[in-house]
């Protein structure tokens, strides 16, 4: 079972982005960082050879960021 070195870097980057989203106090910036998560997932899917899933992930990632930002109107931006 072989894992390419760039794949390992991307996986570690994925975990780092998730930790950043969890520990972020500003919800708006958490939503923006989360779009970076989906972009990294797109790169991983492309590397595994499934352009179908990568395409879907790219489109849905961009839409869900808009949803998160739109739903910020109902809640407070900073979590205390």
């Amino acid at each position: 079972m072989q894992i390419y070195i760039i794949e390992a870097i991307l996986l570690i980057f994925l975990i780092a982005i998730t930790c950043a989203v969890i520990f972020c106090k500003d919800i708006l910036s958490a939503a923006i960082i989360y779009s970076g998560f989906s972009f990294t997932a797109v790169l991983l899917y492309l590397m595994m050879g499934s352009p179908d899933v990568a395409f879907t992930e790219a489109v849905i990632g961009s839409i869900s960021t808009v949803f998160f930002v739109a739903s910020l109107k109902t809640i407070d931006r900073w979590c205390k």
């Binding site: 352009p51 179908d52 990568a54 395409f55 879907t56 489109v59 849905i60 961009s62 839409i63 808009v66």
Partner: peptide
């Protein structure tokens, strides 16, 4: 090519958005 109904619908909704 890679694509299909689901992706086309999502891209169309991006246009509306």
């Amino acid at each position: 090519s890679p694509g299909g109904g689901f992706q086309a619908g999502a891209v169309l909704s991006v246009g509306v958005l």
